[in-house]
Design a protein around this nucleic acid. Sequence first.
DNA 1: CGTTTCCTTGAGTCGTCTCAAAGGCTGTGG
DNA 2: CCACAGCCTTTGAGACGACTCAAGGAAACG
Lengths: 254, 254
Amino acid sequence: MTVRHDVHSSGIPAYCLSCQARRRGLCSALDPDRLAKLAKTSSRHSVEPGVELIGDAEALNSYSNVLSGVVKLTKSLSDGRQQIVGLQFAPDFLGQPFKAKSAIHAEAATTVSLCSFPKAAIEQMMKQSPELEHRLLRQTLNELDEAREWMVTLGCKTAPEKVASFLLMIARNIGSSVGPAARSACFDLPLTRADISDFLGITNETVSRQLTRLRMDGVIRIENNRRVTVDSMSRLEQRCGGRRPGRNRPIYET
Amino acid sequence: MTVRHDVHSSGIPAYCLSCQARRRGLCSALDPDRLAKLAKTSSRHSVEPGVELIGDAEALNSYSNVLSGVVKLTKSLSDGRQQIVGLQFAPDFLGQPFKAKSAIHAEAATTVSLCSFPKAAIEQMMKQSPELEHRLLRQTLNELDEAREWMVTLGCKTAPEKVASFLLMIARNIGSSVGPAARSACFDLPLTRADISDFLGITNETVSRQLTRLRMDGVIRIENNRRVTVDSMSRLEQRCGGRRPGRNRPIYET
DNA sequence: CGTTTCCTTGAGTCGTCTCAAAGGCTGTGG
DNA sequence: CCACAGCCTTTGAGACGACTCAAGGAAACG
């Protein structure tokens, strides 16, 4: 299985060898021959923040791996209210394999680099190799799990807890951890205050107030409105709610 | 494809022939031989409301098709706050194929009848037939879509809109439609007020007040606290939010 | 028939929203 | 390099919606 194919199956482009998607993404489900075949049809792009990747009800003609940056998935009501229903980080797979009943909208939140494939190429390969579909099932199950996890935040938590939970989620996804055991973290916020408010189901004024409060309380530092430093992850975790005050670990009780 | 196998592949139990899961559920992915094989390991149960089907962090030793009734999927914070993250109706498939990172809890909301299989039987069959895994992927994508749809309700809508949206969702899933073009509907609420409040992220008092309001306004009628009649589905839809007042259809604008 | 659980209704409080204005980045053109 | 415009963010004051607490009523259960 893990025999070295590097030498003779030279059809694999060099950039695949160091690609995140090859190691941890969808491409990891492909054997070298299939990867080489798929790679021939691939192309890399970089898109600026705000660019629409999948439009509401719009036909999608390609699938992509996210290589860097953050993509926001949104849904909106026709009166303008909007909800961010998911964020995608590298090496997530972007695209709706079988169109869902309801429309979704994908937009680059930061500068995003993508590796795109024609829709047909992926779909054909999926028919041939169950491994690929299996990998897709796993990612979908993961997204479902994340969506449900976030439903708890949306439905149960207070505004301060929501903002803390958001920061923690971002720190875990794109934070460069500093210190032993990731006791602190540092990152650029991929979303504006307005985006964060759409994600958390609160107003941007409330987001701003809660960030200020976390800053005043010394839980985080903010530079240039974007760069966030979390000095103590555990203090941030305490503010996410769901833990009995004074306890650090969940208590299993019946 | 649709050649009659009834006669010679007599290994299929009679109860499968009229089963919802065979027609629209997971079993529809199986050819007669495989269905017969799987059916040998299956068993039917009926469970009362409140019975736990999948416990938090508990090993799940079987998968099931929901044949009737409603199952609620919940997640909770350790301080007791709880969120219903999904409802399952017949012929949904119940069980976590590959355990998710976060724990989920499943409980019968009404009397539920199930058709259960040993975990191993399903997993083995899934390896053999990609069709089955494909069907599972489709259901998972559907559930993801529903979860995201509900996130919009949780994050964007007001309490009156949430309650109206909930009633509409239930009516569409288990309502017996009356009149032409499903202009009205009738059903038993599968959830208590407390459950509904856990689903909508509001308190049960608020749920009760909003139901009263819908009743006062003549949008619904309620008998015995459980039986709901919606006389005009369109009036209910208008109360779900997201439509410009005075409009019945979505407006596509750029 | 009492007990329990669920549901409804009311009154007062609190959290979040709304509206408004000022402050801080960023980029552009003079 | 500075002035300006535009956008995002912060902060404040007041309003409103949903929550909390509390009590009473209605089904369901043994």
